[in-house]
């Protein structure tokens, strides 16, 4: 299947054969199956957020960045971590490509739109703008990787201090502001995405479940934890200038 076919699956004949329909491999071809894959990759990326945040909390240790630099040295040299980088990249790629595919398919299911429509009366905004919030998070991801990941992995022998890299980048109000907006939108993406993933996996028997409370960790506390970093360094830079 080439890229064009991937994004433009036809409506008819995709399921012309019922034979072989019960094979797990054909999961990918059905609507439910594709959403399940979006949900699973999404939840995998959520587990990454937990790991990423917990490591990065070392930024707040008052030791001039020694602990954080040691941690980033470990992360860039450990073989297991380097392997997981590829798994993570696959997770991102899968979530993004499937997300685009599902969005493009869905757009074609109502060729003529309503003259008057009031979606705010029956559904949440977060649920309806997943593609928009997801796209912003993608742009954020590219900028983020370019600023921190690329110098740390491809700088050759003269590796910069990651702590210095982070503190310098976040001292720029524009850059820090971009982070705050992006993280807020990532939280908004997860506001719908986290509980929605469990619904898609069939693990949400009632409207109000434990999942909705666990979801709060992901859409509120984790983005807030990340947001604390640019705020902290912006404030530190301001304080240093003021003295």
């Amino acid at each position: 299947m080439n890229l064009s076919e991937f994004f433009h699956s036809s409506f008819v004949n995709r399921h012309s054969s019922i034979n072989g329909m019960d094979k797990p491999a054909s999961l990918y071809q059905s609507s439910v199956g594709q959403k399940v894959l979006v949900a699973l990759t999404g939840l995998f990326l959520c587990t990454f957020l937990v790991v990423h945040l917990s490591g990065n909390l070392l930024l707040f240790k008052q030791d001039g960045g020694r602990a954080f630099d040691g941690y980033s040295e470990f992360m860039s040299t450990n073989l297991g971590i380097r392997f997981m980088e590829f798994v993570l990249a696959a997770g991102f790629l899968g979530h993004i490509l499937l997300g685009i595919r599902v969005w493009m398919y869905n757009r074609r299911c109502r060729p003529e739109s309503y003259v008057m429509s009031r979606p705010s009366q029956n559904s949440s905004l977060a649920a309806r703008v997943m593609f928009v919030t997801g796209s912003v998070v993608f742009v954020f991801l590219v900028v983020h990787l370019k600023t921190f990941f690329v110098p740390s992995r491809f700088a050759g022998n003269i590796k910069p201090s990651m702590y210095r890299l982070v503190s310098t980048a976040f001292a720029d109000p524009v850059y820090a502001g971009f982070y705050l907006v992006s993280l807020a939108l990532m939280g908004y993406h997860l506001r719908h995405g986290f509980q929605s993933a469990f619904q898609t996996l069939g693990l949400r028997p009632h409207r109000r479940t434990l999942i909705d409370y666990v979801a709060m960790i992901f859409w509120l506390f984790i983005p807030a934890g990340f947001a604390a970093m640019p705020v902290y360094f912006l404030w530190a830079a301001h304080w240093a200038r003021a003295r």
Partner: peptide
């Protein structure tokens, strides 16, 4: 589900509308 898909209905985004 196979019939639903082949008729051209969209995928569920869980908006709960």
């Amino acid at each position: 589900v196979a019939q639903m898909d082949s008729e051209g209905f969209g995928y569920c985004s869980n908006t709960y509308a």
